[in-house]
Amino acid sequence: MNLKGKCIVITGASGGIGKEIAEKAADKGACVVLLARSIDKLETIKLELNSKYGNSAFAYQLDVADPGQIQSVFSEIFAAVGEIDILVNNAGFGLFSHAHEADLQVTKAMFDVNVIGLIGCTQMVLPSMIKRKSGHIINVASQAGKIATPKSSVYSATKFAVLGYSNSLRLELSEHNVYVTTVNPGPIETNFFNIADEQGTYVKSMKRFMLKPDFVAGKVVDAMMTNKREINLPGWMNLGGIFYTLFPRTFEALGQKAFFKK
């Protein structure tokens, strides 16, 4: 799909795959709108993109956990750029802990960012997309939304929620020619694990299997404005998810040792 002139809004764009998606989309001629809590980082990225590609890049500070901010910031975006063609809901965080040790405040924060914030941003762009019968919602979920593992109970719950919401939304929007894609990656080599894996044990055991942000971002940008249902990475992990769905007890028995490496 030719992205030239398309307006793409990306949450969690201050680093990781969000930043990489912005760069790859700008390289294809898209107007990119960068959203994150860290406005200093966003401004730096915006200047780099405008200097490198000569495209229109915008940056707005947004905490997706704040519904009031979502409303006001998206109003500013519409006033500045007009219609939004693609929304990439990338903002999210996780924290590995045993279920009985999970802090309820952190649990609420995780749902506020990973689920409620995603829904809030999506609701802001849907009316216009439905009216125009054109648009694309891309929700970054996780393989953790397909395979639940120890010490990921809350994080997995948020990603299962994202997949459920996306699947329902896809059906609702099918008659309006608005696409919904979920991105379900395994572990990615980003600063996500600075918070999620405080002990560093998971990163140490999984480092050789970690995906590169650039690779994941490329797959996401290639799928823009196409009716792709899911992007599952890496392929072998997705096969594990299929096996898990069909034979959950067997999968858990065989994978138990690996699951407890967090």
Results as ranks from 00 to 15, higher is better:
residue 124 M to Q: 15
residue 186 G to N: 03
residue 178 V to D: 08
residue 149 T to W: 01
residue 189 E to N: 15
residue 109 A to Y: 08
residue 183 V to A: 03
residue 173 L to K: 08
residue 157 A to T: 06
residue 147 I to S: 03
residue 107 T to H: 07
residue 152 S to P: 01
residue 113 V to R: 06
residue 124 M to R: 14
residue 186 G to K: 01
residue 134 S to L: 12
residue 117 G to P: 14
residue 190 T to S: 04
residue 117 G to H: 12
residue 181 T to D: 01
residue 120 G to D: 11
residue 116 I to K: 09
residue 117 G to K: 13
residue 172 E to Q: 13
residue 154 V to Y: 05
residue 110 M to A: 11
residue 154 V to F: 01
residue 172 E to V: 02
residue 131 K to N: 13
residue 178 V to L: 04
residue 159 K to A: 04
residue 175 E to T: 12
residue 163 L to N: 11
residue 117 G to F: 12
residue 131 K to I: 01
residue 127 P to L: 13
residue 122 T to M: 08
residue 122 T to D: 04
residue 124 M to V: 08
residue 163 L to F: 03
residue 152 S to N: 14
residue 141 A to R: 00
residue 164 G to L: 00
residue 135 G to I: 01
residue 127 P to G: 13
residue 185 P to C: 05
residue 166 S to M: 03
residue 142 S to P: 09
residue 187 P to K: 00
residue 173 L to H: 10
residue 135 G to P: 04
residue 120 G to C: 12
residue 157 A to P: 07
residue 190 T to Q: 01
residue 107 T to Y: 10
residue 157 A to M: 09
residue 121 C to R: 04
residue 115 V to W: 07
residue 126 L to C: 09
residue 122 T to Q: 05
residue 114 N to A: 09
residue 160 F to A: 00
residue 148 A to L: 00
residue 185 P to S: 07
residue 167 N to W: 02
residue 121 C to I: 08
residue 131 K to H: 13
residue 145 G to V: 05
residue 114 N to D: 15
residue 139 N to D: 06
residue 111 F to V: 15
residue 169 L to I: 09
residue 135 G to F: 03
residue 128 S to P: 00
residue 152 S to F: 08
residue 134 S to T: 06
residue 113 V to A: 14
residue 165 Y to I: 10
residue 164 G to W: 04
residue 188 I to M: 03
residue 171 L to G: 04
residue 141 A to D: 01
residue 137 I to A: 00
residue 140 V to Y: 03
residue 175 E to I: 10
residue 155 Y to E: 02
residue 170 R to M: 07
residue 160 F to G: 05
residue 129 M to R: 08
residue 125 V to H: 11
residue 122 T to K: 06
residue 138 I to F: 00
residue 179 Y to S: 14
residue 171 L to V: 13
residue 146 K to Y: 07
residue 157 A to Q: 02
residue 158 T to L: 05
residue 173 L to S: 09
residue 120 G to A: 10
residue 180 V to P: 10
residue 141 A to C: 05
residue 133 K to F: 06
residue 109 A to S: 15
residue 118 L to W: 11
residue 171 L to N: 12
residue 112 D to A: 15
residue 142 S to M: 01
residue 181 T to H: 05
residue 127 P to Y: 15
residue 160 F to R: 06
residue 117 G to S: 14
residue 173 L to E: 09
residue 109 A to L: 13
residue 139 N to T: 00
residue 158 T to Y: 07
residue 115 V to M: 14
residue 153 S to G: 05
residue 188 I to A: 02
residue 178 V to A: 10
residue 130 I to E: 11
residue 150 P to T: 06
residue 164 G to K: 02
residue 146 K to F: 02
residue 164 G to F: 08
residue 144 A to L: 11
residue 148 A to P: 00
residue 156 S to R: 06
residue 121 C to T: 10
residue 174 S to I: 06
residue 116 I to Q: 08
residue 110 M to F: 08
residue 133 K to V: 00
residue 165 Y to H: 09
residue 181 T to V: 03
residue 170 R to I: 01
residue 125 V to W: 13
residue 124 M to D: 04
residue 155 Y to P: 03
residue 111 F to H: 13
residue 112 D to T: 13
